[in-house]
Amino acid sequence: MDFLMLYQRSFLAGLLTAVATALMGVHVVFRRMAFFGDAIAHVAFAAAAIGVTIGVSSFLSAVVLAVVASLILAKLSRRNISEDVSVGVLFSLTMAIGVILFSLVKRQRNLMSYLFGDILTVTDADMVYLSTVTASVIVYNLLFKDALVQFTFDEDFTKLMRPKIDLVYQLFLMVLAITVVIGVRTVGVILVSAFLIIPAATASIGAKDYRKVFLFAPVLSSISVVVGLLLSLYMDVPPGALIVVVQGAMFFTTIALRR
């Protein structure tokens, strides 16, 4: 009974993560921000290490620093500093800080958990965070997805028609940062970018209307979670890695079918 309850919670956690990351991933793919998501994941890793070191909630510390970092990256990109350069610096620096801090406090077990995640160990608090973040992502996309897509493809015109679009974009960065943080908890720093990119990229290949991409991406991601968790039951392999393999198989199958 306990075993079944464990997997029921893991399925729900995986589905919530799939929906949140896939919806935000559509914007990431459209704006070609894949490296940005990776950088925020590494910021979350360093922030969690800081939380463990000073004895505060690693989730809350990760949320705060990830949001701040996302806004800093947005500012740097508007000051003639290449986004690739600023993201690359942040990516490397935060990873190094995280490894050092986890080593200093002798928490190598925590280090592995944050790097690769463990969807089978989600807690009641994690479920509350996941539910809240997923609901926020859905509400954000219902309200602003069209405006943000327009901003992506025609920035000047959108600024003219929607004077407050910069606020919408900054809110997007904050929601994206929080989504990545919660994704790190379930699938880890290494794999969270796959949840952001692969389902959205697959959906964008298969759908002609961008609105359908917002529907197909979370569906594909959810299917990959269910299949990956079921396979992990039989193969005794970490579910996060299997889920990403299923996502990759969907991506290449879609490309092959389009030909």
Rank of each mutant, 00 (worst) to 15 (best):
V29A: 03
Y140M: 13
I205Q: 12
Y7N: 07
T21F: 01
I81K: 11
A13Y: 02
G248T: 00
M235D: 08
K106H: 15
Y114G: 10
V225F: 08
S82V: 14
D38P: 11
V29N: 02
I138R: 00
V189R: 15
F214N: 02
R109M: 10
L176M: 03
V87A: 14
D146F: 09
A135I: 07
L60T: 12
K106Q: 15
D2L: 14
V67T: 05
M127A: 06
K75R: 13
A74F: 10
Y114K: 11
P238R: 04
V225G: 06
F151S: 05
Q8M: 14
L215G: 09
I243F: 09
S131F: 06
F151R: 07
V181C: 06
F195W: 12
D118V: 03
A96P: 02
T123K: 11
A135P: 04
P218Q: 03
L220Y: 02
S92D: 13
I50T: 12
Q247I: 13
G14V: 05
A34H: 11
A34I: 12
P218W: 00
A194W: 00
A74Q: 14
R9N: 12
S232T: 01
F36C: 04
V175A: 01
A125Y: 10
T202Q: 02
P199V: 02
L233D: 05
F214S: 01
L60W: 15
T132A: 13
M5N: 09
G228K: 06
R259Q: 10
V184E: 01
R185W: 05
L104C: 10
D124C: 08
G14M: 05
M1V: 14
L90A: 08
S82N: 15
I190K: 09
I223C: 10
P163W: 01
V237M: 04
L257R: 06
T17G: 11
S82M: 08
P218H: 03
L101S: 06
I165F: 09
Y234L: 12
V180E: 07
A48R: 06
L196K: 02
A46F: 09
D236C: 07
V189W: 15
V184P: 02
L73I: 08
D236P: 08
L176Y: 02
V105C: 14
S82G: 15
F214D: 01
D209V: 10
M161R: 10
F11T: 09
F91H: 08
G117P: 03
Y234G: 14
F116C: 08
H42E: 09
V225C: 10
A147L: 12
F30G: 09
P238M: 04
A125D: 11
V85D: 11
A69G: 07
A18P: 07
D154Q: 10
F116G: 04
L230F: 12
L4M: 15
L120V: 14
M235T: 13
A49Y: 03
L71H: 07
T94I: 05
I243C: 09
R79W: 13
M174R: 00
A49C: 04
G206Q: 15
S113I: 14
F30C: 07
S86N: 02
M127S: 06
V237G: 04
Y129P: 06
I243Y: 08
D2P: 11
I165A: 08
L60S: 13
I197N: 01
F151W: 09
G37I: 00
G228L: 07
V213K: 07
I255Q: 01
